[in-house]
């Protein structure tokens, strides 16, 4: 009785099992990467603050290099986000709950 109840619950997905099959596992880690992306972005965009100042001995970083760096980061983030959007659409990550099983 109790065991059949437990199976029911798992199949309904109310209480996801602790471990997942390979595909679902990939899907979850994909969702993790989507969560981590803004932190990566934040770190990349704060990094230029460590660059030498214009008043420093090296004369600072030329603005064109800064523009290159910022826009490269920007494009990188967009591409990762685009990739995730496509994969998410294909594998239906949207349907999963916010829970974090592994």
């Amino acid at each position: 009785m109790t065991s059949s109840e437990g199976q029911d619950r798992t199949s309904r997905g109310a209480r996801p099992s602790l471990f997942l099959e390979r595909q679902s596992y990939r899907r979850r880690r994909l969702a993790d990467s989507a969560r981590l992306l803004p932190f990566l972005g934040g770190a990349l965009l704060v990094l230029p603050l460590l660059w030498p100042d214009a008043e420093s001995e090296s004369g600072g970083v030329p603005l064109s290099s800064a523009i290159f760096y910022i826009f490269a980061c920007w494009i990188g983030l967009i591409l990762i986000s685009l990739f995730f959007g496509f994969v998410a659409r294909r594998s239906g990550v949207d349907d999963s709950h916010g829970s974090d099983a592994g």
Binding site: P48, P62, L63, S64
Partner: peptide
Amino acid sequence: ERIDASEIGKWQVDAGRWT
């Protein structure tokens, strides 16, 4: 080249304002 030669041609931002 023109950008680098201009008066704003160096990377110079206030860390506080930036973040």
